[in-house]
Amino acid sequence: MADTLSPPGPVAVQRWQKTGAHLGEVLDALSNLRRQGAGQGAGTRTAVMTLVVVGGTDAEADSCLSSVRALGSHHPCRALMVRPEPDSTPAIDAEACLWQARTSDGTDEHPVFFEELHLRVGGQAASHLASIVGPFALADMPLVLWFPGPPPDPADPLLQVATAVLVDTRFASSDVAEVAHVYRTLLELANRQPVVDLSWARLQPWRELLAGLFEPEPARELLRGVRSVAVKGKPGPRHLLGGWLLAQLDLRTREVTLQDARHVEISLHAAYGEEEGTFVVSRDDTARAVWARATLSCGVAHSQALPLPDDSLTTALSAAMGNLRADRVWERALAAAATLAS
């Protein structure tokens, strides 16, 4: 949530870099950064995981980095940015940095230190990233691989070192056939290890609000008679939400309509017995908020609004890091979304 994710910006306290480095030198450099920062309190490490960002475009990597730093005080982790470049000179270029963030409980402030390491891996080694990532993993801590670009090949040996894999289906192609392909690849991956979709985490407010509209008893009964569902949005989110509703409400594909739009909106019409109801969850264009409204023919009407975080990637990353488990509901939604896309 926005109010919990606004630590003061972290600052770099120590840096080191080398072109053509051996892994041993990089590991020594990381230890030295800690030692040199010990006077500022960096001798004590509080870490919750090793996070490895693999590939992606420069813009994607920058976006990942700023989110990791923004989360530094809440999810202190050793972050590795690995850029495989199999066609360039066989060498490893490394840059390490020790960051300091501060947490505050309103009374006291505590420094939190976390390390960031950039590795450009050229030549054949780029195809053997597991051997490079492994030595940097913090002992006894989860290792999370984050693929900001296309999802990895499920057979990639690098995946074997991971506790969980982070992906983002938000930017799936506008080509529906490719969307379906990405979803099937992810399902195959999810069969092997926990996959966490940042897009799914980002859509949680919509899901929670829609589910919440059916909590009062008269509305709950209407779930027995959902007649139609319309989901608007960009290709990734609208397919995922459509798939979720298709799977969870056991609908037929023709009862789910998908439509292109800038913002996500879900409309659901239901009738059961003598009761009818309309349920809408939509984004307010004028404010960063999502609104949910239920109107029933018996006269009951309720509505709710939730603020959207200023930085949706950071918030989604925070939610994902707090829940690195297989999500069967997401997997069912993905499978149904693949059907809708094809």
Partner: peptide, 11 residues
């Protein structure tokens, strides 16, 4: 009988 809310699964 009260009907479970399938949309709340996982939430």
């Amino acid at each position: 009988a009260a009907f479970d809310n399938p949309l709340a699964e996982g939430l």
